[in-house]
Design a protein around this nucleic acid. Structure first.
Lengths: 208, 208
DNA sequence: AGATTTACATACAGACATGTATGTAAATCT
DNA sequence: AGATTTACATACATGTCTGTATGTAAATCT
């Protein structure tokens, strides 16, 4: 077949990744053959094997193209608690509005079996978790320093709690396609999670 | 082959389910063939197809044999917040000590692709979630009535937050085999999650 | 006791996926 | 401009999985 120019080849590669993400998110990673991906992208398996070593390699490319969902460092305005809240809100905004991100996370959280070559990917995810924990811990430390929360709050514990909350929230949000239980209320739930930590300055009326 | 007695047949069926769980949790649902399961159970595919319609059916049996991980109704002692905490603790205790439960949840949360016949299972999981939400909401309502928490706490929101926290916690606990980030501290994190809601009776020293 | 199921094992047929080897025409290099 | 590489398409060889059909001897039924 006629050789493509470098730019064309890059386009082909990109198209393959794009289609792989779609097919993965529809049929699951294990169930999709490279033939399916190739057909969807309008090429043959030859093209796929040219650009990627195997399905695991292609899967990595899908992940890399979307990148990480949330970096707290991106948020600069407001106090530490507000920045935490903004980060969580933003992650969900991306899931809702960015089809690529939504599909990628759908694959990673519901359409993939972390086994064999993919067992390593799970460790990657946990490493990304460590980053989340580091950033969140720093923000909670700042919140303590600035007396946004009581001095008894343990930043590490709070960060771990937020991490669990975040992981479950993303996973449940994706599954809740009907939208009743989680999706429609999720922003308020996030606010609840963060704001309930904030030191209340008004006196609780009936507290001793 | 010689026909088995009813009791023997029941044993065979049970052995197949048991082995299916193990193999699923090792190799992932999609990757395991019924031949693998059969061999592990010391039978042929004939036996598997006799007891189960197909792999999805077998998977359902695996789920059913383990049952649900957490019912708040099982906890009777202590105030509402303590019962919430006990429930969450108990779920983790089971994961840690009960190999069967651990394997089943490992399969459901990390080694299964919710696609095709399995898409329905995901809806089941979300329905189980509705039950969780109902029970947790009731407990938070009780906590409000008993003034364990401030009157501004919205039981529904708190329940949803706890649900997300719970879902993420289970998933992360399973993945954190090293034990550093999550496993070793998880009981404290749970306590943190629940107790931080409790109305503090001592006055915060420097709060206005 | 004879008829009928049952609880499997064995055998068969078809579909499908994977990886590699080979072909090829144009793009890129020198 | 000629040599070389590239970006695929095509062909092949192999292994695996699935579902069903058939066989069978003992358990259960009547």
């Amino acid at each position: 077949m006629a050789r493509k120019t470098k730019a064309e080849a890059a386009l082909t590669r990109h198209r393959i990744v794009e289609c792989a993400r779609q097919v993965f998110s529809r049929d699951g990673v294990t169930n999709t053959s490279l033939e399916h991906v190739a057909k969807e992208a309008g090429v043959t398996r030859g093209a796929v094997y040219w650009h990627f070593r195997d399905k695991a390699d292609l899967f990595m490319a899908v992940r890399q193209e979307t990148g990480i969902l949330l970096r707290f460092g991106d948020f600069k305005s407001g106090d530490a608690l507000r920045r935490l809240e903004s980060g969580l809100h933003e992650a969900l905004r991306r899931l809702a509005e960015d089809k690529q991100a939504r599909e990628t996370y759908e694959v990673m959280l519901w359409k993939c079996e972390y086994v064999g070559e993919f067992a390593g990917v799970r460790k990657d995810l946990m490493s990304a978790g460590t980053l989340f924990l580091t950033e969140a811990t720093a923000l909670y430390e700042e919140a303590v320093r600035d007396k946004l929360v009581g001095p008894e709050l343990d930043p590490q514990m709070a960060a771990r709690e937020t991490f669990c909350f975040y992981a479950g929230m993303i996973k449940l949000w994706l599954a809740d396609e009907g939208g009743q239980a989680i999706r429609s209320e999720i922003l308020k739930v996030i606010t609840h999670h963060i704001e309930s930590r904030r030191l209340r300055r008004r006196i609780h009326p009936k507290a001793v």
